[in-house]
Amino acid sequence: METFSEVLRANALIVAFTVVGLTVYLSYMISKRLTYGRIHGSAIAILLGLVAAYFAGLETEGQRGVADIGVLAGVGIMGGGMMRDFGIVATAFGVQFSELSKSGLAGIVSIFSGVLASFLVGAIVAVSFGYTDPESITTIGAGAVTYIVGPVTGTAIGASSDVIALSVAAGVVKSILVMIGTPMVASKIGLNNPHSAMVFGGLMGTTSGVAGGLAATDPRLVPYGALTATFYTGVGCLLGPSILYFSVRAFA
């Protein structure tokens, strides 16, 4: 048994391929046999992943889900930023450039309105919870943008560490909700073509959320949503500690 666990630890990424493969297989079986194909297999697989990450987090008290369990460390490599970005770029293969330029304007508008809308929501909720200092309000608003914009903004303007932690939590909630919620609302918000997928990516912005949500809805939409989403965090980090912070200070 000890030897087996040693082999697993020494070949982390390979173990991850096996485990994720089994998870995907199981999910497609569940999709077919229990939901008769109504819930997409990849949506179930993503949900299983999140549930596993929750219990792993309770068990290990770590921050990286199942990747904190020694023998499953490879899942963290496979699902880390490097492989995620590599996979996302690969999905752009087969995309027509004309399709992208046609939606360019809507895409750009969506990025800025997405950052603004999420920030406003976060700032309003922060105020209604009794926060009055512009630093905390801005940081929580920035957390609603993404869990990267929150701490970047908070650190830049000198917010307290518990507010920064809150902003990260808000961003993670958003990201996970987008993963789970997108397939459920896709048909209601017209998310069935490259054009609306680009708008969707720009509005949501959380790369992980958009990546997971679109993959579970229709994998062909992934490249369009991911393209705009990858600009969102940068725009958020640009506006958060500057224009947005100054505007909050003018009001508070």
Binding site: A16, F17, V20, G21, T23, V24, S42, A45, I46, L47, L48, G49, L50, V51, A52, A53, Y54, A56, G57, L58, Q63, R64, G65, V66, A67, V75, G76, M78, G79, G80, M83, R84, F86, G87, I88, A90, T91, V168, A169, V172, V173, S175, I176, M179, S208, A211, G212, A215, P219, V222
Partner: peptide, 18 residues
């Protein structure tokens, strides 16, 4: 491989913090 990668990504999120 993109979807399996996303599944691995989901499994390494800090869900407890959320």
């Amino acid at each position: 491989m993109y979807i399996p990668i996303v599944v691995a990504m989901a499994a390494s999120q800090n869900v407890v913090a959320a």
